[in-house]
């Protein structure tokens, strides 16, 4: 990186002459090296999915020791990626904010307020020389019980909580975003069960494309009518059929590609 050695990257409280804060950019790099997280805001809910690379054969990935999607309140789900201990702190903070709101106002915290508050918290860590920015990003899926609306936010290490129709972060961010854009979610939102399929397709696609492919474990959760507007893991049977569909799709696409190549060779 061009910034190394210039001295402007030693502290989060120092701007470089061209107006960048390198410490924050390094933190973002930590996110770009970690497992992919994809979120889709649906016509009837919101879905989160993440791919957990199994970096050691003996790690027990199905257990909570390597948990990437958390329920922070009954109506809020957070999928985080990046430096695992940092994302744990983010999740902990989200849970506390939601619980504090409930204690003070006697109702559920609106998801956008939660995203805002978490944004302020993360941003604070980019202001001080004595602090290190979060090496983690969080995708926040929520259902507002008052307005009956679902929402999807991405919180990055710089502290900006943007709202999205569909979002991806982590290692496969770019490719996943391209796939999400093809779905035209901002014009024609898809249903939650369809979103589960698409997310699985994207995660498996990225996994196939990556060269160093370590095995992955996929976690998918949703908030929709079927889950009682609560954040729940997508039922195992739905996950199974969706995963079969996704793999079938990918095989077909691969065959099509092969056919295309053959055609090209012939012509």
């Amino acid at each position: 990186m061009a910034s190394s050695g210039s001295g402007y990257d030693l502290s989060a409280s120092t701007f470089s002459p061209d107006g960048r804060i390198f410490q924050v950019e390094y933190a973002t790099k930590a996110v770009e090296n970690a497992g992919t997280v994809v979120g889709i805001k649906c016509s009837n809910g919101v879905v989160l999915g993440c791919a957990k690379p199994i970096h050691h054969k003996m790690v027990v990935a199905t257990s909570g020791s390597y948990k990437r999607i958390h329920t922070c309140d009954t109506h809020i789900g957070v999928a985080s990626t990046g430096f695992l201990p940092d994302s744990r702190v983010l999740v902990q903070r989200t849970t506390e904010e939601a619980a504090d709101w409930l204690e003070q106002y006697g109702g559920k915290i609106p998801p956008h307020v939660l995203a805002d508050r978490l944004g302020s918290y993360v941003h604070y860590f980019t202001l001080h020389g004595a602090l290190r920015p979060f090496g983690a990003a969080a995708v926040i899926a929520g259902h507002d019980p008052d307005t009956k609306e679902c929402s999807l936010h991405l919180l990055e290490p710089n502290g900006a909580p943007y709202r999205f129709y569909g979002v991806a972060t982590g290692k496969g961010k770019q490719a996943a975003k391209t796939e999400l854009e093809k779905l035209n979610l901002h014009k024609t939102p898809i249903a939650a069960d369809e979103a589960v399929k698409q997310i699985l397709r994207i995660l498996h696609l990225l996994h196939q494309e990556s060269k160093d492919s370590k095995p992955i474990e996929v976690e998918v959760s949703w908030i929709c009518e079927a889950s009682g507007w609560k954040h729940k893991g997508v039922p195992k049977d739905v996950l199974k059929t969706s995963e079969d569909w996704a793999k079938e799709q990918l095989e077909e696409e691969e065959e099509d590609d092969d056919d295309d190549e053959e055609m090209e060779e012939e012509s």
Binding site: G64, K67, I69, H70, T71, G77, T95, A98, H231, G233
Partner: peptide, 22 residues
């Protein structure tokens, strides 16, 4: 009630079980 409801919620949100084992 408000104390134990918060406790019951924390039991779920602070759990390190997977999202499937609430």
């Amino acid at each position: 009630v408000s104390r134990v409801e918060a406790l019951a919620l924390a039991e779920t949100t602070q759990s390190m079980e997977s999202v499937y084992d609430e």
